Simulated assay, not measured.
Amino acid sequence: MILTTPVYVFNMSAQLKVFLDRLHAVDYRVFKGKKIVLLTTYGDNEEEHSGVQNVIKSIRMTAQMLEMDLVQTLNISTYSAPITKNEKAYILGKNLVNKEQGE
């Protein structure tokens, strides 16, 4: 499962929060053993002041509850450049596509 969110007011977007809240109605067993990758963007020049850690903690706790494995987080500042110019994000996406295709 790939989760992405901008960091707004030191936490995840309302859309991601609603998605997580609605998992309450799903049979948790369908997620057991699956993997989560989290990508956040934030508009500060320092990650520790952006609220990224609040998002990671929430997703980590959700993963534990669902018995999923949070395998990677990528937190990108858009303070000086858009995410489309970020090579780490490009490589993450490329690696996920290659794994999906069995390469």
Results as ranks from 00 to 15, higher is better:
Met68Gln: 07
Ile59Trp: 05
Tyr28Arg: 04
Asp69Trp: 00
Ile83Thr: 03
Leu39Asp: 00
Leu20Ser: 07
Lys32Gln: 04
Gly33Thr: 02
Leu66Glu: 08
Glu100Phe: 15
Val97Cys: 06
Leu96Ser: 03
Glu46Tyr: 11
Gln72Ile: 03
Ala25Tyr: 08
Gly33Asp: 07
Thr73Cys: 14
Leu3Arg: 08
Glu87Val: 12
Lys35Ser: 10
Asn54Pro: 03
Leu70Gln: 05
Lys17Glu: 14
Thr62Phe: 07
Ala25Arg: 03
Ser58Tyr: 04
Gln53Asn: 08
Thr78Leu: 12
Phe10Ala: 11
Leu23Val: 04
Gln72Trp: 06
Asp44Gln: 08
Thr84Trp: 06
Asn11His: 15
Arg22Met: 14
Thr73Trp: 08
Glu46His: 01
Leu66Ala: 10
Leu70Asn: 12
Leu3Gly: 08
Thr78Gln: 09
Asn75Val: 04
Ala89Asp: 03
Asp44Gly: 02
Gly93Met: 01
Val26Met: 13
Val26Tyr: 09
Asn95Val: 06
Ser13Met: 13
Asp21Trp: 04
Lys17Cys: 10
Lys35Arg: 07
Glu67Thr: 06
Arg60Phe: 09
Glu100His: 06
Phe31Ile: 01
His24Glu: 15
Pro6Trp: 01
Ile36Leu: 01
Asn98Trp: 03
Glu67Leu: 07
Asp44Arg: 07
Leu3His: 10
Glu47Lys: 10
Pro6Gly: 14
Ile2Val: 15
Leu16Lys: 06
Glu100Met: 11
Gln72Tyr: 12
Tyr28Lys: 14
Tyr8Thr: 11
Gly33Phe: 02
Gly51Lys: 05
Glu100Ile: 07
Lys99Tyr: 00
Ala89Gly: 05
Met65Tyr: 14
Val37Met: 01
Met65Phe: 11
Asn45Leu: 06
Val97Met: 12
Glu100Tyr: 09
Ser77Asp: 05
Thr84Asn: 09
Ala89Ser: 06
Ser77Leu: 02
Ala63Pro: 10
Asp21Phe: 06
Lys35Gln: 07
Ile83His: 02
Ser50Val: 03
Asn98Phe: 06
Phe10Met: 15
Ala14Thr: 13
Tyr42Val: 05
Asn75Gln: 10
Gln53Lys: 07
Phe19Glu: 06
Tyr28Leu: 09
Gly33Cys: 00
Arg60Leu: 11
